[in-house]
């Protein structure tokens, strides 16, 4: 522990309303803490800037997972273990069950929350690409009410989001609309477990005959934030998977993805590697559609 914990203040407001009014009274003063699996790491290495923490982990009204008019609604406090154990998720949103299962280790999954993963907003986070391809919307709550955004618009830049200092993530909402879609996800991490992804790609697609009628792609570690790969989607929508045109389709998809990929060299991998592997994963997905 490289921090002096006596310099930190942690309190747990009795109600969500109380927490929201504290946030509203002095925006920026407090940092919410849910599972703490990000913030406690920062504390341990002596780099947690915020000295005042408000726990929201105990708010059961933010920990839910329910079906609601053709949607699944997931509260921000839902843990990865909750997601992994949910029959609803397993049946309708298999990519989310998968990404939750490889977020950290069991201990992380017991504490870490979907809300924390979204707000931490790491470009390498495992769950945002899935939320992106599933067309999620995100609901934010503050003392002045709720607002709902297309999740696609939520991430603004490197660790920058639409969340205001007086707001909390309330929930995400995903349409139950992917029956019959082909679904793909692959994480290429530094190892097979307890790994930060070097690159990850999630995709869903609907085919009509040998044609791609609709395709959505989401990626981690491909740019400075979690992204929908709109250029690749555009290039591939309507493309043919027939044997004689598959190579051309693959090339078009790869080229479009390369245009929107802006990966970096860092301590875990290289930009060149990340770009190449992202294209390879896309190709793997497309080939599976052709089968």
């Amino acid at each position: 522990m490289r921090s002096d914990v006596t310099e930190y203040e942690l309190s747990a407001p009795a109600t969500l309303q109380e927490m929201l009014s504290l946030l509203a009274a002095e925006p920026g003063k407090y940092t919410p803490i849910a599972g703490g699996t990000e913030l406690m790491v920062a504390l341990g290495v002596g780099r947690l800037q915020s000295r005042s923490l408000l726990s929201l982990q105990h708010f059961q009204e933010l920990r839910f997972l329910r079906e609601e008019d053709g949607h699944v609604v997931i509260g921000a406090n839902t843990t990865f273990t909750d997601l992994r154990r949910s029959a609803l998720i397993a049946e309708h949103l298999p990519l989310l069950a998968q990404s939750a299962s490889w977020t950290g280790a069991i201990a992380n999954q017991n504490r870490g929350t979907l809300g924390g993963n979204i707000v931490n907003a790491s470009p390498a986070a495992d769950n945002p690409p899935v939320l992106l391809v599933y067309g999620a919307s995100i609901t934010l709550i503050s003392a002045s009410g709720m607002r709902t955004l297309d999740y696609n618009d939520f991430h603004l830049g490197y660790k920058k989001t639409q969340l205001r200092a007086d707001e909390l993530v309330h929930s995400v909402r995903i349409p139950l609309a992917y029956q019959g879609y082909r679904q793909y996800i692959r994480k290429v991490g530094t190892r097979n477990a307890l790994a930060i992804s070097k690159i990850a790609l999630a995709g869903i697609a609907r085919t009509e005959g040998t044609r791609i009628a609709e395709i959505r792609l989401g990626a981690a570690s491909l740019t400075d934030r979690p992204i929908r790969c709109l250029a690749a989607e555009k290039a591939l929508t309507g493309a043919s998977l027939a044997a004689d045109s598959l190579e051309a389709t693959l090339q078009a998809g790869r080229a479009a993805l390369a245009m929107e990929a802006k990966p970096i060299d860092d301590i875990r991998s290289t930009a060149r590697y990340r770009s190449a592997v992202a294209e390879n994963l896309l190709e793997e997905f497309l080939r599976s559609l052709a089968e």
């Binding site: 290495v45 002596g46 930060i196 802006k262 875990r268 930009a271 990340r274 770009s275």
Partner: peptide, 23 residues
């Protein structure tokens, strides 16, 4: 390889986590 990476971001920093450089 045809596709290099973007050099816009400082390649020396770990942007994925907050715990990259330890003292």
């Amino acid at each position: 390889h045809p596709h290099g990476g973007s050099r816009e971001l400082d390649p020396n920093t770990d942007r994925d986590t907050r715990v990259e450089e330890t003292i």
